[in-house]
Design a protein around this nucleic acid. Sequence first.
RNA 1: GGGGGUGUAGCUCAGCUGGUUAGAGCGCUGGCCUGUCACGCCAGAGGUCGCGGGUUCGAGUCCCGUCACUCCCGCCA
Length: 594
Amino acid sequence: MHQYRTHSCDALRITDAGKIARLSGWVHRKRDHGNLLFIDLRDNFGITQCVVDSSNSEFQKIDDLRLESVVCVTGKILRRSDETINATLSTGEVELIISDAEVLAEADPLPLQVNSDMDYGEETRLRYRFLDLRRDRLHQNIQLRSEVVSSIRRRMTEQGFTEFQTPILTSTSPEGARDFLVPSRIHPGNFYALPQAPQQFKQLIMVAGFDRYFQIAPCFRDEDARADRSPGEFYQLDVEMSFVTQDDVFEALEPVLHGIFVEFGEGKSVTPIPFPRIPFAESMLKYGNDKPDLRNPIVMTDVTNVWSGTDFKIFSSAIEKGAVVRAIPAPGADKMPRSFFDKLNDWAREEGAGGLGYIIFSDGEGKGPISKFLDTERMEQLKKLTGIADDGAVFFVCDIEAEACRFGGLARDRIGAELNLIQEDQFKFCWIVDYPMYERDERTGRLIFSHNPFSMPQGGLEALESDDPLKIKAYQYDIVCNGVELSSGAIRNHLPAIMYKAFSLAGYNKEEVELRFSGMLNALKFGAPPHGGSAPGIDRMVMLLAGEQNIREVTMFPMTQQAQDLMMGAPAPVDSERLEELHIRISMPPTKET
RNA sequence: GGGGGUGUAGCUCAGCUGGUUAGAGCGCUGGCCUGUCACGCCAGAGGUCGCGGGUUCGAGUCCCGUCACUCCCGCCA
């Protein structure tokens, strides 16, 4: 018989009755009846009830065990009597009658209860992460994550992609986020950087002729955390392909994403292939942002013309100064009480907007404080534009375009949630395409790259030379699911001439570009294939699939919001000898005076 | 860097308008219980009310500061 176990704690069934079995696991729960003791023994796979009574010499040893101690028990498998069957356990028709028991490891009293689904404070959970991970919910989430990653690997490989590793110690990249730096011992005063993403490497892999690359890639960015953003590190399904158009990238990724979400989505419906493609400008107009939650059926429209020149001066004079009015149709809102509209108005004020104007339609007639400013003709136009004609309400946001989009988007989310319009049982995917290549930096007035400086501008060199830079679009795209940005990607700029020109518009001269991107540029000068790719976030995909609101719930060993690992005690000071070796001297920030 | 929330027993929380000895559940320790499955019953131990200062006859409670966790803004392709 095996030293530790003949079966897992999820293996025994009624057909095993009569056998001698050996199980090892954690003491999940004890039910002590004095002379009869039940132990729920748990391992990775499940739970089996084990029984011992006081006539057994092992009784006292087991009776003394605290919860979460590790024990190996051996004994006969018995069919339970009909009244004692536990239908909630897969092993509930049998139990193990303990004849021998060996304590493999004793547990101290627990700082958090493993056998409970109670909410615990984040600090306790992170400090004792190994205990939290034993608990069902987190255990399942991490298991799911592993299965998702395996399935991604299989699906990518089947589509002809090849997995490669790229360096973790690399050079600092001038664009994007703050780098994590690693001091060089051999080169005093010089630093490696951890990759923010394997962006340049994957392009170099294409230049090297490997055609289709993917990697479950760790990415490191020294930026502040959010609920959906780990501090420090996260993982991407990093993808790059040669000789492809934007549509080829979409067609390669859609079946993988669709397949994953069908496989692990537990019956929720998934947007059929091909996913809708929504131009950036259209998304901003209709949804107020570039990561629309399409489970919300509300679509905004521009109704500036409806309000222009009316006697409602708040809107009409703002329009004269360049503001726009966006309508947020709210089907069914005519049935809501007055407090619903007041609450939304209060919320709008808290968000810094002037308020949230509205017109209520019931039986085809417009009512509400501002409806009197619209004559019949304008009212008809409004009904036509918003699709709200007989029953419902229309909310209005009036501001300069960017602010109207932003706030309208928030209001759309809010109203959709309040009216229970969100289709919770769905995964709604879309591509956002045609991002602008450049935007104006509001503080400096300078032209900056909107997204990736390595993206190919639509229209190529000609567009860069003759068009208004702010009108140039890039072959740059995001994939969005249920309002979560999963990835961004692009067809890359593989031509040095276009790269020099693209950077010069953003204020970098040829020398600077060569200095900063020598590796990349050099490679492009020796025959680079047209190529492009994307990089969906693994953590966020698993978050969506697990139905979690927080990325720490799908991360095995996360750090706190302040980027500390409470379990391992990182970051931590190091010995002065280590610092000397690295040619580093600490310069502490001044301590605050009180 | 900024704004909000939380911080009371090992854990989750209650503690009113400032007023006697700060409570409950779980866990822990001891006792009783042979068919439970969140077993039940009895008893006990366990507290720098995050920390520092202030107001007050009196502070868990009010004020100021600070620290930790968290949510958000900035930041982040």
